[in-house]
Amino acid sequence: MGDPKERKDGGKELDITFFHRDLLEVPEDGTLPYLKGYRCIKCGQLDFPKMDLCPNCWGEEFESVALSRKGKLYSYADIYVGQPGMKTPYIIGYIDLPENIRIFSMLEGTVGSFRCDDDVELTVEPIRLNKDGSPIISYKFKKASA
């Protein structure tokens, strides 16, 4: 999991393999990964993903907040015809977190196995291949363990 735009010895710029440090924290000490919300210091509004400015008050400073790892699957779609270059079928969904935040995410699991209002939890997985053919790691959600 390198930094965005890491460089090879020959100076050739490689495409990203991790998306994105502002969104997803994967602690190196082995504790559980989490999504990063941003609370505006000026007005207190919590947003995900990070915005350049707080759209509510134009606040420029934010405090990072670890978002809940579990949420409810509001709706989902089994995609059979997808984006160019993406292997099908794959699954996308909206996950509502207790912090009143909705996350758009891919779902880890098999098509036909999800239902609205399922309990789901965060997982870290490849979402697609980059321009060099290497996997890009990001957040996904899967059915929550009981």
């Binding site: 709706s75 984006q83 758009f104 697609r128 990001s138």
Partner: peptide, 28 residues
């Protein structure tokens, strides 16, 4: 392949296609 929003959009990066957005509406 399916029509999709711009590639600089966070949802597109995570597989969004226009059919999928409407499919989620239909599912719900």
């Amino acid at each position: 392949t399916a029509a999709m929003p711009a590639m600089n959009d966070i949802e597109t990066m995570h597989g969004a296609v226009m059919t999928g957005k409407y499919s989620m509406r239909a599912t719900r």
